[in-house]
């Protein structure tokens, strides 16, 4: 079967298309032909499928912020590269910097929590040591001293509470407790 003039034109456009030399108008002509023409020669059916498949992939929507995201991503990669190439990292390496931070934390913790040497003025019992590992330098380690000091503390508290009048302290305690509850409700 002899190709028609129109078919010859399409074949010519297809050749240009495969060479990458078609204009947008020419590509649209091809698409229009293959989507509307019902009498397509057998030898062009494969071309039709290809052109129609290409047409489907033409309309890809590009996200509005794609450029911005790409620039940000490139900047991020650039910053990572700069970090790797920075003089500190090059000189000491990441493990060394990490180790330095750990040492700094350890020293900080030691300075914050290490016990201070006992001061002579502080009352620290020495006999009948029952607690080998004390956490505070002024910790009492003698049962008798612990009893005496607890007794003193409680008796002082007791006497001062009594000074405020029998029952008055209790009333005060209760009133404060009620106030505390009322405040928490009102909040």
């Amino acid at each position: 079967m002899t190709p028609t003039a129109n078919q010859n034109k399409i074949i010519e456009l297809l050749n240009l298309y495969y060479d990458g030399k078609t204009t947008i108008e020419q590509e649209q002509t091809l698409i229009k032909y293959f989507s509307e023409e019902t009498d397509i020669p057998k030898e062009l059916l494969a071309e039709r499928d290809l052109i129609m498949a290409m047409r489907e992939t033409v309309d890809i929507e590009i996200p509005a912020k794609l450029e911005e995201e790409l620039v940000n991503h490139i900047d991020k990669l650039d910053r990572k590269e700069q970090f790797r190439n920075s003089s500190w990292v090059k000189r000491f390496g990441i493990p060394a910097i990490a180790a330095s931070i750990v040492i700094a934390i350890a020293v900080g913790a030691f300075l914050t929590y290490s016990p201070i040497d006992p001061i002579n003025n502080n009352v620290v019992a020495n006999n009948q040591l029952i607690a080998a590992n004390t956490t505070r330098y002024d910790e009492v380690t003698n049962i008798d001293v612990a009893y005496q000091e607890t007794e003193k503390a409680l008796m002082l508290l007791s006497s001062k509470l009594n000074k405020s009048g029998h029952g008055l302290a209790v009333a005060d305690v209760k009133i404060n407790h009620i106030n505390h509850k009322l405040n928490s409700i009102l909040k």
Binding site: N122, I130, D138, V140
Partner: peptide, 15 residues
């Protein structure tokens, strides 16, 4: 200059 005493829970439990 202060005088201080600390009595722990363990010591209190020994009373």
């Amino acid at each position: 200059g202060v005088t201080s005493v600390y009595i722990s829970k363990m010591m209190l439990s020994q009373i």
